[in-house]
Design a protein around this nucleic acid. Structure first.
Lengths: 213, 213
DNA sequence: GCGACACTACACCGTGCAGTGTAGAAGCGC
DNA sequence: GCGCTTCTACACTGCACGGTGTAGTGTCGC
């Protein structure tokens, strides 16, 4: 019998500490450079415990990413409801879209975490096929945004024949230049710069998607 | 005296072979995973020779990237002149822009090299600060495209108050979704898919930048 | 007190890999 | 032929790191 190595269940608090430390170190150093010893130190936990909890470095990595992704998706939904509610009125539209874009991009560039995770995903996509989500429109973030845009379209504020596509472009226009210039968070950007880039992106989006353009 | 390790000049052909092999292995495996032995094997050269030529892994890496970048920039200029000449007429515009976008994105997604290099840069930007070009508008690719758009603007085909910004958006719209979905070349995309994504991007660009929109 | 479990500290193994040293073969100018 | 350089083949060092084994220290339920 190949006997499963029987990972330990352990306490949720400790799991959380490990996963948080792991993400921090992975994001900072990259997968290969990150050492399990460093993660253990960061989590204030013995290396042995990490192996008892997660088995090996790879599974720790995947767990950390999965957990973070879920948290980020939840964050995004909240952000979307806060800045771009379905009840947005016509003359609030540009302001609301800019607020949405700014909140989104600021989160990307300041918290550094979102973009950094993206950077990590891009770096490791080829080595961990399971990280690659097959259906691009299935990404919850895109889906939520598409639904919101569709609502705005039905109310006649925007002209969005293809909400999924429009959502992709909006995300791209708003965050693309920020990611491009900051190398997905590797290089810090000034706040004013971020704002300027975001506003430019929203302006282009509106020129392309405003009703009757 | 700290005596410089005196790198060997060597033959250009051998240098080229090493650099090409290095890029291939670095792109395939990433910087840390790539072993100098593997590069030597790939280049059909002894490991010692690589060290005599380049000193250490890091300098080899930087040389390979620098050389590739220059080549890609030259390629881009040629591509731009071929698909989007300054003499483009009004009714050729959409077709020419699409051709440009398609050629650009196809090169990105098919040759795999361009996107893969980008992936490598994103992955290593934080670890090799010298890779990060400080001036984002100084990237020759963006500059060349901006000049071309400015020409089209002056001839009244497009409305581009800020050509540098427009160039950035065009690049983003055309390649962004391809990069996004292919994880910068880590996942292959079907040709038809690429074409569809590119055309969508051009359509949005034109809606936003067409004269009198 | 006692057993069971969680955890740490620490020593340890194996391996992969950056980088070096060197002997010798191959080519070239003269 | 002779000396010089280039290059290879190969052995070797040092080190970092993934992963394991284990003895010992709490800590909790009973």
């Amino acid at each position: 019998m190949p006997d499963t190595p029987t990972l330990r269940q352990g306490s949720p608090a400790k799991r959380a500490a490990i996963v948080r430390a792991a993400l921090e170190v992975f994001v900072r150093d990259g997968y290969t450079r990150a050492s399990v010893d460093a993660i253990a130190r960061e989590a204030a936990v013995s290396k042995r415990t990490i192996y008892d909890y997660y088995g090996d470095k790879e599974r720790l990595f995947l767990s950390a990413l999965a957990e973070t992704r879920e948290a980020q998706e939840a964050d995004f939904r909240r952000l979307l409801d806060r800045t771009l509610p379905g009840t947005t009125s016509r003359d609030e539209l540009a302001v609301a879209l800019t607020a949405f874009g700014r909140a989104f991009a600021t989160e990307i560039a300041r918290s550094a975490e979102r973009a950094a995770v993206m950077r990590l995903l891009i770096a490791e996509a080829a080595h961990f096929p399971s990280l690659v989500r097959p259906d691009p429109e299935g990404r919850p973030v895109q889906r939520a945004l598409a639904e919101r845009l569709a609502e705005l379209g039905e109310r006649g504020l925007l002209e969005v024949p293809d909400p999924a596509e429009a959502a992709e472009f909006l995300g791209l226009l708003v965050t693309g230049r920020v990611d491009y210039r900051s190398w997905y968070g590797a290089v810090p950007l000034a706040d004013g710069e971020i704002e300027r880039l975001v506003e430019g992106g929203v302006r282009v989006f509106l020129r392309a998607y405003r009703q009757g353009s």
